[in-house]
């Protein structure tokens, strides 16, 4: 800060701590107990950091799906996710110009896989995924032929929320951008993917040739 008095800036102290040469700052630290204490604190943080294991996203970066770091809570923020999903869905286009769902020829089953990121370690789960607080989830939807699909989250104890409504997906694998984060509350949500008429309220979705689901539950109730 400009009025920081005679101390070097926080940045200069941190750069010095990181090994960057700064004779003036080093000389100051020699005679300043407050700055030495700050550097001692940083040294302690570094020691703790270096004692911890390397995160998985650095151990095997090629296998890691980039998480956009959206912090969401599975149960309580589902209403807000609807807007977020509509804005941030990767490879989805608005379905208004596409054919209505009943004109699409179904050539195979839609698939949905959850990618669970726990402390940087990722696993892919199909059918049911167990989460702990802090886990993050992304979803990969496989579409065998172009069609309009909706993605709906149905908590066991709350109203259904449409995350994506009638978006036109080309054939292929689509990674959905919204990331869900499990919080401290128990989580029991089913994610439904299928034609809007079959998964969006008031329809009660069921697994079938054109509808698929994924169950998300807390590891401990």
């Amino acid at each position: 800060m400009s009025d920081a008095g005679s101390h070097p800036s926080a940045f200069r102290l941190e750069a010095l701590h990181a090994g960057e040469a700064d004779a003036e700052a080093a000389a100051h630290v020699e005679r300043c107990a407050a700055c030495r204490a700050y550097l001692d604190g940083l040294d302690a943080e570094r020691a703790a950091h270096q004692a911890a294991p390397m995160p998985a996203f650095l151990e095997a970066p090629a296998n890691v799906v980039p998480f956009p770091a959206r912090r969401s809570r599975l149960v309580y923020i589902l209403p807000a996710l609807a807007a977020a999903a509509a804005l941030a869905l990767v490879l989805l286009r608005p379905g208004a110009d596409g054919p209505p769902p009943d004109e699409i020829r179904m050539k195979g089953a839609v698939g949905v896989v959850a990618i669970r990121d726990r402390d940087g370690a990722q696993v892919r789960e199909r059918g049911r995924v167990l989460v702990r607080p802090g886990d993050r989830l992304r979803f990969e939807v496989t579409v065998p032929a172009a069609k309009s699909l909706s993605v709906v989250a149905r908590p066991d104890d709350g109203p259904a929320e449409v995350l994506v409504s009638g978006a036109r997906l080309e054939a292929g694998v689509h990674l959905l951008e919204p990331t869900l984060r499990a919080d401290e509350e128990a989580t029991r949500v089913t994610i439904w993917v299928g034609p809007p008429a079959l998964v969006e309220p008031p329809a009660v979705p069921r697994d079938g040739p054109s509808v698929t689901s994924l169950r998300i539950e807390s590891e401990s109730p």
């Binding site: 996203f57 970066p61 980039p66 998480f67 770091a69 912090r71 993050r136 984060r181």
Partner: peptide
């Protein structure tokens, strides 16, 4: 001002 969000940003930084 949020540890979890900060850790998300940290991972994104390394990406």
């Amino acid at each position: 001002r949020d540890d979890a969000l900060g850790d998300d940003a940290l991972q994104e930084t390394f990406v």
